[in-house]
Design a protein around this nucleic acid. Structure first.
Length: 427
RNA sequence: GGAGGAAUGGCAGAGCGGUUUAAUGCACCGGUCUUGAAAACCGACGUGGUGAAAGCCACCGGGGGUUCGAAUCCCUCUUCCUCCGCCA
């Protein structure tokens, strides 16, 4: 959620940013919000004055009663009762104004960073770091990962349909082991870089989903357990970042670095077609996430650090990748700047998104009330997160890019985790 | 699942209808003393709203109510503790 002071003091920058995202009626909305906030202040001030008067008179009554001057006390009660009615009116108005303000404020996405390119769709994303090597060329008859999955017994989509439905792959045999090995490898890689590992709940309450911005914006993307009013997490970002909801840190606590493995659940409503075959897009998938909570002055430096971290991970896996800087229209609602990592899927001959690394500035911390003690008072911290990494498309790329006559060769970093150097055909 | 108890400032812990921003202790911070440190002493020491400031307002687990006035009384939800039962 954007800060009211930002809307007031940096209107030009805010509007320019919102225009990059093609937010309709941005100026009218901002003006309306500021007007509502003015109204809020006015009503609050007058109501507070009434309350002050009530408190003062109530104190008087106490003294009169103690002194045994009952009649004077009773007369004053009537006076206070009259004030009380006005207070109630004022509080009702205040609540109504606050609610409208909140409803409007929550519709505004984050203001993109200055360097974020203008644009609407993924076509407009900037190729921030192109792949500079040679893309692997596969032998004649190379197969996409869904075919390889059958030959190698990696995962079974039909079993998933039987137990649950489409988009819930069942990993099998050496495929299940590959997934487990990747999770362990990623977690070890992250903790070696100073991230502390957590195992958070997979279901979260409404307050948690709101604080990181999944609600109300992405309501339809989450599975909702209506009976208990809980949501299945679409990413570990949600519970991990919320560990620090309503927290006031000291500057010396920075940077807070968290990592965690969780399954992620996404309804992916409305995504169908050729590009969702195999593991390209599924409803449940494994992901290891990294989160940082940092000093506002450091956040973009840290963003670069996190981008380098993910890049190193992909280098070690030996996967060709490129880095995009997302344009305004493609940047997530809550993010100020996002880098996407895409690995080359050699058999499908297309780039697959495997990680998204974002800086949210104060957009999340404002809703989280995540602050630190500054020289004078408290300030909102900055939050960042990124995938390191999401599994399915990594598995897809490993299978496709490394397929040979006698098996899928595994990158050296995984040998120890899997107890093998290559995946073997089972049929 | 049954019975009882409890939730107060970073921590511990008073207060149980009216001068409560909330006793006291510890921790932390500034200072005096000291070569330095400790001890001792002095001071400061929650968050948010409003305001130039003084000040004013709200917050004692969440929500609602009673009252002129609520940390204090009532209702409700949540969490934790103790005992009993059941169980990975």
């Amino acid at each position: 959620m954007l800060l009211l002071n930002t809307l007031r003091n940096e209107k030009v920058r805010v509007l320019a940013g919102l225009t990059k995202r093609q937010v309709p009626n941005a100026e009218a909305t901002v003006d309306r919000i500021v007007a509502l906030d003015d109204q809020r202040k006015a009503v609050q001030t007058s109501t507070d004055a009434l309350l002050a008067e009530r408190n003062r008179l109530s104190g008087e009554i106490g003294k009169l009663m103690k002194a045994g001057r009952r009649e004077e006390g009773n007369a004053m009660r009537d006076k206070v009762n009259a004030i009380k009615e006005e207070v109630t009116k004022g509080e009702d108005e205040l609540n109504a104004v606050k609610a409208e303000l909140e409803d409007l404020l929550i519709t505004l996405p984050n203001v993109p960073h200055q360097l974020v390119p203008t644009g609407v769709t993924e076509e407009d994303n900037e190729i921030f770091r192109p792949f500079d090597g040679e893309l692997p060329t596969l032998p004649e008859g190379a197969k996409p990962h869904w075919d390889l999955a059958d030959e190698y017994g990696i995962f079974d989509l039909e079993l998933g349909v039987k137990t649950t439905g489409a988009g819930f792959p069942v990993f099998t045999g050496q495929g299940a082991r590959l997934a487990r090995g990747l999770v362990n490898y990623f977690l070890d890689f992250n903790t070696a870089a100073g991230y502390t590992e957590f195992q958070p709940p997979l279901l979260v309450n409404e307050a948690t989903a709101r604080a990181t911005g999944q609600l109300p914006d992405k309501e339809g993307q989450m599975y909702h357990v209506t009976e208990d009013d809980l949501y299945l997490i679409p990413t570990a970002e949600v519970p991990l970042t919320n560990l620090y909801r309503d927290v006031i840190l000291d500057e010396k606590d920075f940077p807070v670095k968290l990592t965690g493995y969780t399954p992620c659940f996404r309804r992916e409503a409305g995504s169908y077609g050729a590009h969702v075959r195999g593991l390209n897009r599924v409803h449940q998938f494994d992901k290891v996430e990294v989160v940082q909570i940092v000093h506002p002055e450091k956040s973009y430096e840290i963003l670069d650090e996190m981008v380098a971290h993910v890049g190193k991970l992909l280098d070690e896996l030996g996967l060709p990748f490129r880095i995009l800087r997302l344009c305004g229209g493609d940047t997530g609602f809550t993010s100020a700047m996002t880098y996407d990592f895409e690995v080359w899927s050699a058999a499908q001959k297309r780039w697959l998104e495997v990680s998204s690394v974002s800086c949210f500035e104060t957009f999340q911390s404002n809703r989280l009330k995540l602050r630190y003690r500054a020289e004078k008072g408290t300030e909102l911290a900055h939050t960042l997160n990124g995938s390191a990494l999401a599994l399915p498309r990594i598995i897809a790329a490993l299978l496709e890019n490394n397929q040979t006559e006698d098996g899928v060769t595994l990158p050296e970093v995984l040998h120890g985790y899997l107890g093998m150097t290559k995946l073997k055909k089972i049929r």
